[in-house]
């Protein structure tokens, strides 16, 4: 009974991890957060696989998780390369900047309103100013909206 219970609970945790990752992958717009969510879904699957392997007294589950780790490492390398390249082209991590890749029939996504930044949203670390203020690059100001 105890082994069945452990399998049951692990499948529960795995399903929750997978579902949370799915929600994040669909709804977040930051490309890096999207990739974190994809990794989270892989973790959910890994938890389930290890639990099944233990339940059936079989090493296959752990083997599969090792290969999941391998593929996740590859995926991370490619994903970070892609993100860096996309960032260099658009200057943002926003996935909506690449909506030109959508199909013809899909209407363009338009941000209905820009969320104003409130004071409490600006959680900046408080650094003591020191030295002379360096000359500001105008291009830099355009790019970094809040610094």
């Amino acid at each position: 009974m105890s082994e069945t219970a452990m399998l049951h609970n692990s499948l529960l945790v795995g399903a929750l991890l997978f579902g949370i990752g799915l929600i994040g992958f669909i709804s977040r717009r930051n490309m890096i957060v999207m990739f974190l969510c994809a990794e989270m879904m892989l973790q959910g699957v890994s938890v389930s696989l290890v639990a099944w392997g233990r339940f059936h007294d079989n090493w296959g589950g752990q083997m599969l998780v090792i290969f999941i780790l391998t593929v996740a490492a590859c995926e991370a390398a490619i994903a970070l390369g892609l993100i860096l390249m996309l960032f260099q082209r658009s200057g943002r991590l926003d996935i909506a900047a690449w909506q030109d890749l959508r199909e013809d029939s899909v209407p363009a996504y338009v941000d209905r309103e820009i969320v104003e930044v409130r004071e409490e949203n600006k959680l900046w670390p408080k650094l003591t100013p020191s030295g002379i203020e360096p000359p500001v690059d105008p291009e830099e100001i355009m790019h970094r909206e809040h610094v």
């Binding site: 082209r89 658009s90 200057g91 943002r92 690449w98 338009v110 941000d111 209905r112 820009i114 291009e139």
Partner: peptide
């Protein structure tokens, strides 16, 4: 690329 309209980011291509 064409950006989502309504963006606050002005000089988007760096």
């Amino acid at each position: 690329p064409h950006l989502a309209t309504g963006s606050t980011t002005k000089g988007t291509s760096r």
